[in-house]
Design a protein around this nucleic acid. Structure first.
Lengths: 141, 141
DNA sequence: CTACTATCTCAGAATAATTCTAATCTCAGA
DNA sequence: TCTGAGATTAGAATTATTCTGAGATAGTAG
């Protein structure tokens, strides 16, 4: 359970998906794994380059695209104009607070299973987006 | 049941929401009501100005924002980078085909048994996004 | 019907998110 | 090590959206 372990887990995940492990790609994915807040590219970049420059903007974009393509990260579209990213690729839903804008993961089993067979389409995945006020903002309004 | 009727319905909807009825705003909303395909701003604009110029781009944006603010249209976010718009403001879900990109409305009652009380948040609305292959693309793949 | 004014529209500029370019560099297999 | 496919980069380009400020107009009150 040394510090090196988390590093190795991330390296192995990248390798097992056939991705070359570069410092930039590692940093982007490690950063995303350490967060729960569904950051935008801008937020990831700011975080990475806080102390000294680690990655360019273009690389964060291409890294995220590579990670997305192999299924290590998911894109989250909840607001106009910005993509957010999520290293939690297990099935789950999202709650979006209309006041503070925060995004919370909602457990998959919050909803009972759906009747996707009734659709005239081949459904491969689905997710629920819930909007409202988060625990902090309830009462402030 | 004359042609004027549909026109009047739209005019009355705009008025009842306190919106001034301008030719541009009318055209944007009428166009959106006549479609089922959740168009982007670009598509609406192209449609409106097909024969002769009706509206500028900026006006389509501001019209849609005005219509959205009063609840006559909904914004649909399913793909990165573009907002789509929907004049169907009754509760419903969306299906998004990963092959042809088409978007279909899915009846509200396709899903049941939601336990929103179990969330530690104040849920005000929700919707399901389903992804997969539409009827046309099933088999083509 | 006319005048008024708050609101709307417009072209073009500005901003913001993302992608492209093409030169340079580097990971990882042999 | 050597090597080459693939990655990184700064900056330019592209695309979606918003802003600006001046001129037009819907709808109301007289």
């Amino acid at each position: 359970m040394s510090k090196g372990n988390l590093r190795d887990v991330i390296v192995n995940r990248l390798k097992s998906k056939g991705l070359r492990v570069t410092p930039q790609r590692f940093a982007v994915y490690a950063n995303l794994c350490s967060r729960r807040d569904h950051p935008t590219v801008e937020q990831i970049l700011k975080d990475l380059n806080q102390d000294f420059p680690i990655s360019s903007q273009a690389t964060v974009y291409t890294s995220l695209q590579a990670l997305r393509k192999v299924g290590l990260v998911k894109e989250v579209l909840l607001e106009e104009g910005v993509s957010r990213y999520d290293a939690n690729v297990e099935p789950h839903h999202h709650f979006h607070c209309r006041q503070c804008g925060s995004i919370k993961d909602v457990p998959w089993d919050t909803f009972d299973s759906f009747n996707l067979e009734r659709l005239p389409y081949l459904a491969e995945s689905y997710e629920v987006t819930i909007r409202g006020l988060c625990d902090r903002c309830t009462g402030n309004n």
